[in-house]
Each structure stands twice: as structure tokens, then as C-alpha cells.
């Protein structure tokens, strides 16, 4: 079994009082709670903090934990003989037991012979889905490590892979509930649930806002000035887009119902955001033409600067 230093996780001394442990937990929970923190590693960090707190706030469990002695984080340690006797398993039976699963089972009173049904824990896994899968629908595999209990009641983590179908119309941050696919229940208790939280993977062209999509449409100065027709990408394939004469930078040209499908069967819109670009280097002929244009044009882009300041 690998050692986890719960005192270090909470940043308290081994002599810390229950009050110190509570204060340390609350301070860290405010920073890393998955419902509060936007830190991508927040959930993982919070689990560690919650495990440490669950063990150290309970005098009985803390005493049991302290029996392990002092080790470095991640060190393998031999479980005390009384644990081995209690579980009817030798030290090797503990090899792949996660200490947090062990203390979680301990918390539920499994090794005490309590018979009350205990519901399994819920698990949440973040699933990154390509935009194309959200657009067309499709299946993806989700792998998550879940505890399983052996005949001695010792929890062992095993990877489980689930194939789930992403329906058309799934959205960023939407959850899918896989009922009964979380941690196993004990003493006849129900299994927990697995929640898959969908995130749409960044796309090289399209930016997602709900069901609407945005992409940048670079235009040459002459296309913006006199208008043009061009092929533009959409998730469903290229389409013809007409840019009107006199188009300016930052305009949003709407391609109706070319965005992502919605859950009600409709579709969002696709917006092309215009960006007028100029060549970094121009030939002599081009320069001559620009100069001719400059000479004959009456266009004054900064006309509004000529206001009198009062």
C-alpha cells in the first residue's frame, strides 16, 4: 500500500488539534472545491484534501492512520499486523489497495461488520469531445479507475472503460449520468453513479458559444471594398459566402443554422467574423496602384477626428 501523508496534504503538524485540522481543511476546500475552483486539477486536489480530512477529523480513524507511522508520500509501507489479521489477508493483498479507498471503507464501517447498506460513491470524469463528434453525434470511450472489493473487503482500483454515445445537440459542460456505474455499494447498497462532464475540445477554426460557432474570416482590402464570393468552412462542409461591398473589420456575418445542433432539434448559427488584412510585402506594381487609389479616393477614415474640442 502506498503511503499518503494526510498531515502534509492539509499542511498541519501531527500534533494538530481537531480545530486546526478543520480550519486547514476549510481553507483548502475554498480554494480547490470542484464546484468553486476553476483549477483543472482542483477536483483531484480536493479529493486528496477531503480524504485527509475525513480520516484526521475522526479520532478512531486518525489513531488507526497514525499506527502506520511516518513515511514519505508515495512510499510503500507494510500494513500493521492487526490490519492483516482483521482482513484475513497477508501484506501482499494490500499491494494495490489505495489508502483513500481503504479509509473510505473503514469510515463506512465495513470492517466492523456493520450490515447497513452503503451506497457507492459517485464519480465524475471530464470527457473531451471533438467538435465534429458533437456536430454529427458519435461514440467515445471513457476510462475511469473505480474501486472493487475483494473477498476480504479490501478495495482495489481497476480501470473500467465505458463506451458512450454522444448525441447530436450535446453542449459544453453538459453532464451525462451513467446510473450505477460509479463506486460499488456495500452490504447490498446501490452502486454510485458516474457523471461524464462533456467539454468540447478546442478546434483550430471554430470557437464555440453555446450552439453558435464563430470563426475568423480574413479578407483582402479589395474584397472588403468591392465585395466578393468565397468558399468558407462550416462543420457540415464548405459553403459559398457572399461578402458585400463596404464590409469593415469585426463585422459578424451570420450563416443561419450552420452552427451546432441544439437539443430541441434546431441548430445554432455560424458567424464569420471579418478581418481585413493587408499584405506585409507588396510589389512595385501594387504600390503604384495603391498610390493611384490614394490620389483619387475621397475616403476619410478619420473624418470624425476633426471635431472641435470644447
Amino acid at each position: 500500500m502506498k503511503y499518503k501523508d494526510y498531515y502534509e496534504v492539509l499542511g498541519v503538524a501531527k500534533t494538530a488539534t481537531l480545530d486546526d485540522v478543520k480550519k486547514a481543511y476549510r481553507k483548502l476546500a475554498h480554494l480547490y472545491h470542484p464546484d468553486v475552483s476553476k483549477d483543472p486539477k482542483g477536483e483531484e486536489k480536493f479529493k486528496e484534501i477531503a480524504e485527509a480530512y475525513a480520516t484526521l477529523k475522526n479520532p478512531e480513524k486518525r489513531a488507526d492512520y497514525d499506527k502506520i507511522g511516518s513515511h514519505k508520500n508515495g512510499d510503500n509501507f507494510t500494513p500493521p499486523p492487526e490490519w492483516q489479521a482483521q482482513y484475513g489477508s497477508d501484506a501482499s493483498g494490500f499491494d494495490d489497495v489505495d489508502i483513500s479507498d481503504f479509509f473510505s471503507a473503514f469510515r463506512s464501517g465495513v470492517h466492523k461488520g456493520a450490515n447497513a447498506p452503503v451506497k457507492g460513491e459517485d464519480y465524475s470524469v471530464s470527457v473531451s469531445v471533438p467538435l465534429e463528434t458533437v456536430f454529427h453525434g458519435g461514440a467515445i470511450n471513457v476510462t475511469v479507475e473505480l474501486p472493487e472489493y475483494d473477498q476480504h473487503g479490501l478495495p482495489h482500483r481497476r480501470p473500467h472503460t465505458f463506451r458512450i454515445t454522444i448525441p447530436k445537440g450535446a453542449q459544453e459542460a453538459q453532464r451525462m449520468r451513467l446510473a450505477g456505474k460509479g463506486g460499488p455499494g456495500r452490504n447490498g447498497g446501490q452502486s454510485g453513479d458516474l457523471f461524464a462532464v462533456l467539454t468540447i475540445a478546442p478546434h483550430p477554426l471554430f470557437r464555440v458559444s453555446g450552439s453558435d460557432l464563430y470563426f475568423d474570416l480574413p479578407l483582402s482590402p479589395w474584397e472588403a471594398a468591392i465585395g466578393a464570393s468565397m468558399q468558407v468552412p462550416t462543420p457540415g462542409g464548405n459553403v459559398e459566402l457572399k461578402v458585400k461591398s463596404g464590409t469593415t473589420s469585426g463585422q459578424r456575418l451570420r450563416l443561419s443554422k450552420r452552427g451546432l445542433p441544439k437539443e430541441d432539434g434546431q441548430s445554432g448559427d455560424l458567424y464569420a467574423v471579418t478581418q481585413i488584412q493587408v499584405p506585409k510585402e507588396i510589389s512595385q506594381a501594387e504600390q503604384d496602384l495603391y498610390q493611384q487609389l490614394s490620389a483619387i479616393s475621397t475616403f476619410q477614415p478619420r473624418a470624425h477626428f476633426n471635431m472641435e474640442v470644447k
Partner: peptide
């Protein structure tokens, strides 16, 4: 790799549930 085909519920605005269901799940 053992892949399980999982049944799921999309937690969206189209499907509905009762207050008892919310109580049991949460």
C-alpha cells in the same frame, strides 16, 4: 480492453424527472 456499452441519461432541458428522483439521486 474490456469495454462496457453504457446506458446514459443526458442531463438536458428536454428530459424530465420528479422531485423524488432528484432526492434519490442527490
Amino acid at each position: 480492453m474490456n469495454v462496457q456499452i453504457a446506458e446514459w441519461t443526458l442531463l438536458n432541458g428536454q428530459n424530465a424527472c420528479s422531485i423524488t428522483y432528484l432526492r434519490d439521486v442527490s
